[in-house]
Amino acid sequence: MIAPGMINGDLLLCQVAERLVQATRHGDTVARLGGDEFVILMTELSNTEEVAAVQSETLAVKLLTKVSQLYDIEAISYQCSASIGITIFNRSADVVGDLLKQADMAMYKAKATGRNRVCFFNPKMQADVNTKAEIIQELYTAISNEQFELYYQKQVDDHGHAIGAEVLLRWRHPMKGMISPAQFIPVAEDTGLIVPIGQWVLQQACQMLASWAKASATEALTIAVNISAIQFNKNNFVQTVLDALHKTGANPRRLKLELTESMLVSDIADIKTKMSALQQHGVMFSIDDFGTGYSSLFYLKQLPLNQLKIDQAFVRDILVDDNDRAIAQSVITLSQSLKLEVIAEGVETQAQRALLQSMGCSAYQGYLFGKPCSIDELEI
């Protein structure tokens, strides 16, 4: 089972399908299961499971290579990756539906290990599915019982003065305690539960902005909110944000929505329309983790952005790694050329901050200035 990364709708899917057909053998079957998922049925494999596995993996690697090659769509070059899940069966296999589920589990396991991977089904995956089902049920309860909390991480300027904060979602389970976002955010995105959760986060963030606006010491502070691709792609996303602002009375010029790079290569026209509509009201946009994804100059030119965020992966070793230092400098220089703000995250030492400042960075976020904490613990 194969799921190529989202890039440009039907035109991309057609080209992917052509490549899959070209890469498979005569007698194999290629079918589109739905969305961006394809199924390939391989026949005439060895009766020995180990040999059949090698044969399957050989084709899978070939498919990964084919799918990852550049695509020319409407005079623009794109590149994507695929995740492949494999299950081996014979005539005694139970039900076709079960085989598809097994392949699906393996595919999602491949995605979880970093995409552009091949993964075989094994019984442990069934246990993982059961765990996921438990999390889904508990997420519904968490939404109903308001078990989520917002933590805040301070953002500062050159002088260490607070200019705002990023809100980070936390789940305090009544029995299990604090559950890591890494455990529940992917599940929430897979199930669509990230939409109501994201709406709650927006509402709470706007409510805090409205509260800060009542005091001179905090009225100029901004709040950055991470937006899921699933949440952003909803037709009513713009209205959802405007409703949260209107209901709370928050200043839209103090709200910053953080988008990831991977979101920006799907439907550029729709993204630009939504961003422009919100920006007309004063809402700002930042690209989170810039440099870790596609880093396309095309969308930087096309989209109404306000800020680029240097990912902590480049900040962590910036003092000792020439490549990280060069990438950080490139992001800063690019931001200055495009008249965009730039902020570095993951700053943990004065030496890192000093180097970034010498390179032209003027805003920072990280443990040096404060760990994520509750609003009562936030020092502004």
Results as ranks from 00 to 15, higher is better:
Met1Gly: 11
Met6Asn: 13
Asp10Arg: 15
Leu12Phe: 13
Ala17Pro: 10
Val21Glu: 12
Thr24Ala: 08
His26Val: 10
Gly27Glu: 01
Asp28Ile: 02
Glu44His: 12
Glu50Gly: 11
Ala53Arg: 14
Thr58Arg: 14
Leu64Cys: 12
Ser68Ala: 10
Asp72Gly: 10
Glu74Asp: 11
Ala82Gln: 05
Thr87Pro: 15
Ile88Gly: 09
Asp98Asn: 12
Leu99Met: 11
Met107Thr: 03
Ala110Lys: 09
Ala112Tyr: 10
Phe120Asp: 12
Thr131Gln: 15
Lys132Pro: 06
Glu138Lys: 11
Glu149Gln: 09
Tyr152Pro: 15
Lys154Cys: 10
Gln155Gly: 05
His159Ile: 05
His159Cys: 11
Trp171Met: 06
His173Cys: 03
Gly177Ser: 05
Gly177Tyr: 07
Ala182Ile: 03
Phe184Val: 03
Val187Trp: 02
Gly198Thr: 06
Gln203Ala: 13
Ala213Cys: 08
Ile227Thr: 05
Asn235Thr: 10
Asn236Trp: 06
Leu242Asn: 11
Thr248Ser: 14
Asn251Ser: 11
Leu255Phe: 03
Leu255Glu: 04
Lys272Leu: 03
Asp289Arg: 08
Gly291Glu: 02
Gly291Val: 03
Tyr294Asn: 09
Ser296Gly: 13
Leu297Gln: 13
Phe298Pro: 14
Ile310Tyr: 02
Asp311Lys: 04
Leu319Lys: 05
Ser335Cys: 09
Gln352Ala: 02
Leu356Phe: 03
Lys371Glu: 06
Lys371Ala: 06
Ser374Lys: 08
Ile375Gln: 12
Ile380Pro: 15
